[in-house]
């Protein structure tokens, strides 16, 4: 009879034919030591090499391995999201498919979970990557995410993380969101987050996909995450905040032109026109806020559905 495993280890793989086998045996070796039932979920993100065939062979011999195969390459976040949906364990552990993380660190993550945390993130304390192109940009990004979201971690980019799955299951992740899983789980559902230092190996093969060149995308992503973690609960308020500077500026310009008009009514065109435009923008933000309220109230993946999960969790705690 099939029983639900208590831990699901989700690993996205993209063209990892060289280390897929080693990855599986390492994870399996460490997971066996946990003394809990577990499953390993490999998500083959449309690899063009033999990754899937290798996984097939392993899965035939090892019932703990489940493999989700994508039709084409969709990216890391969709791969993680598919893994979350496929996972059956109460706890989901994620890690990189390229052996940059050490599966032995799982023990530390799970021990921390036992202290009552809902999300435990790995912190690559000593980065093994190039300082200028990788470590520095990621430090800046981490600082920005931490400030923006109010969820304070040192290393959002580390894939080695553990979550209680009920915080992930209600949310459908898409696009480049994988850095923000803890922030979203924490701000929407009140998951208690912690982080612990983990070891980190340099990339053996292949090229990193992230670097300095994508700074604009990172900024856009930051805005999005700000929106999800903060705007979602009171959109009207946040759009009003955005519109406030325009309201102040527009009113000041209008007051200035009224003052000028009382002195002399000659040549008074430009300043009032500009003040009207700026006030119009403030008005636009108010309307946007109303629209945003509609959007959030008709949506499914909002704070309410996830907060409901948290309430259940508290009930369990009392029993």
């Amino acid at each position: 009879m099939f029983t639900k495993p208590s831990i699901s280890i989700v690993v996205p793989l993209f063209n990892e034919e060289e280390c897929a086998e080693q990855l599986f045996t390492t994870i399996q070796g460490e997971a066996d030591k946990l003394g809990k039932t577990y499953e390993i979920v490999f998500v083959d993100d449309g690899s063009s090499d033999k990754t899937f065939q290798i996984c097939e062979v392993i899965a035939a011999k090892n019932p703990q391995l489940r493999v989700v195969k994508f039709r084409r390459n969709f990216g890391q976040t969709p791969a993680m999201a598919a893994g979350f949906q496929a996972a059956r364990g109460e706890i989901i552990v994620t890690m990189d498919g390229d052996l940059q993380n050490n599966p032995a660190d799982m023990h530390k993550l799970l021990a921390k979970m036992d202290e009552g945390f809902d999300v435990v993130s790995g912190w690559r304390y000593e980065r093994k990557d190039d300082f200028l192109t990788r470590t520095l940009p990621s430090r800046i990004a981490n600082w920005l995410i931490s400030t923006f979201t109010g969820v304070h971690l040192h290393d959002y980019g580390c894939s080695l993380k553990a979550y209680r799955s009920r915080f992930l299951k209600p949310i459908r992740f898409y696009s480049d969101m994988h850095r923000f899983f803890p922030a979203i789980a924490s701000s929407l559902a009140g998951a208690r987050t912690a982080e612990i230092p983990v070891s980190h190996f340099p990339r053996r093969t292949g090229q990193s996909k992230y670097g300095l060149s994508r700074i604009f995308l990172v900024i856009a992503d930051l805005m999005t995450i700000l929106l999800i973690t903060r705007f979602l609960r009171k959109p009207m308020y946040w759009f009003a905040i955005l519109g406030l500077p325009f309201l102040i500026l527009g009113s000041a310009l209008l007051a200035f032109s009224v003052f000028q008009y009382s002195a002399s009514s000659e040549g008074l065109v430009i300043v009032p026109s500009i003040s009207f435009m700026v006030l119009g923008t403030a008005f636009h933000f108010i309307l946007s806020g109303i629209l945003a309220e509609y959007v959030v109230s008709t949506g499914e993946t909002d704070g309410r559905s996830i907060i409901a999960v948290k309430t259940v969790h508290m009930g369990e705690g009392r029993i």
Partner: peptide, 22 residues
């Protein structure tokens, strides 16, 4: 920003990946 709000709150309808087999 509103577009992003629409997507996140309605993200259950997004097909962000296609599974070939499990």
């Amino acid at each position: 920003l509103i577009g992003e709000l629409i997507l996140f709150t309605h993200s259950k309808d997004i097909q962000s990946y296609q599974i070939e087999k499990i």
